[in-house]
């Protein structure tokens, strides 16, 4: 029998770092000299998933480009908590214009860089789910169809958190928000609504689309790096729990994100040129209730009468598992 490469098994394969790996194999976040593109002193809430996801993504992009990036930020939590006058937490060239135009501003930056003969400088646009899937969607779609050389990153925390947790088109069914209260015959967000922007991005047949999670750093860094290997429009959708809006414990941010993936509710996949190219298998599948229970926005599901709605959510997860081939028997 052939021996497996030993490093595969070593302690903490899924941890951020690993002293046993060669330096070039280690994650960006494990580097003592990592960029910290979003540095300390920002005003994100305790346990903010978006702050974490943004640093993960931008640091990885910096490594992939040799620190040659410009970031364009939509209005939202990320923008507000990172750049209140007189202090900014960003260490990269960064601009904030409006809520709904990050993709277009990024297109302009990319065009300018081309005109200056500086197309080594890569452009990232970023925003929350509201700025991406709702108000910024027109500009996003325009940037996609023109195939502008921009990586757009959506940090999806599934509602308008900056304004006090209102529903967005990325809010999942049953979730309680300030505009979908847990009241009445159908408490929380209505089933059968919302849109899947990653798949809409795929439909634009742009070079690269991927979903990622703050709970899977290696996968996230791989996808940012991969995205930087393409020219043209690229889209990365990162799931970032919001302790405040979701009613989860700040310490549970990564746990919650992990359970979203492991339950099948948040599938991790990649698509190239309009075709789904790969998915990241679930390591240990869990029922959706493991995920839902940690969040107060879903508390009403566990009151008497919530069973059917939980079953509905489980069915959504089950469908994802089939659709994205998330549970595989090891070869």
């Amino acid at each position: 029998m052939a021996m497996q490469t030993v490093k595969f098994y070593q302690t903490g394969t899924f941890t951020v770092g690993n002293r046993l790996l060669a330096p070039h194999e280690r994650s960006v976040q494990a580097e003592a000299q990592r960029a910290n593109a979003l540095t300390s002193g920002h005003r994100a809430c305790q346990g903010c998933g978006e702050a974490l996801g943004a640093r993960y993504a931008i640091d990885a992009a910096m490594r992939a480009t040799g620190d040659r990036i410009v970031a364009v930020n939509a209005t939202g939590c990320l923008e507000v908590f990172s750049t209140p006058y007189p202090e900014t937490s960003w260490q990269v060239p960064w601009i904030h214009s409006l809520f709904g135009n990050a993709a277009a501003v990024a297109s302009g930056v990319a065009a300018a860089m081309r005109m200056k003969g500086r197309d080594d400088v890569r452009v990232i646009a970023q925003g929350g789910d509201g700025g991406t899937t709702d108000i910024g969607f027109g500009c996003l779609s325009g940037m996609f169809e023109r195939n502008d050389d921009v990586l757009y990153i959506c940090y999806d925390n599934e509602a308008y958190m900056n304004t006090g947790v209102q529903r967005s088109s990325a809010t999942p069914p049953a979730a309680r928000t300030a505009t979908t209260p847990a009241m009445g015959a159908e408490p929380g967000n209505v089933f059968g609504t919302g849109k899947n922007v990653p798949l809409i991005a795929v439909a634009h047949q742009i070079p690269y689309v991927a979903t990622a999670s703050v709970a899977n750093l290696r996968d996230l860094e791989y996808k940012v790096t991969r995205a930087m290997g393409f020219r043209g429009a690229r889209y990365l959708h990162i799931h970032v729990p919001c302790p405040l809006g979701w009613g989860s414990a700040p310490a549970d941010t990564i746990r919650v994100a992990r359970l979203a993936v492991e339950s099948g509710l948040y599938p991790l996949f990649e698509a190239i040129n309009g075709e789904i190219a790969s998915s990241t298998p679930i390591r240990r599948r869990v029922p959706v209730t493991d995920y839902l229970r940690l969040q107060k926005r879903f508390a009403h599901l566990f009151a008497p009468g919530g069973e059917a709605r939980v079953a509905h959510i489980q069915a959504i997860a089950d469908r994802n598992v089939v659709r994205f081939d998330l549970v595989r028997e090891p070869a």
Partner: peptide, 16 residues
């Protein structure tokens, strides 16, 4: 795709 995008692209390129 819109005037909003037109001036937004302009904002980006001018800032760059």
């Amino acid at each position: 795709e819109s005037e909003f995008a037109a001036l937004s692209v302009a904002i980006g390129s001018s800032a760059a």
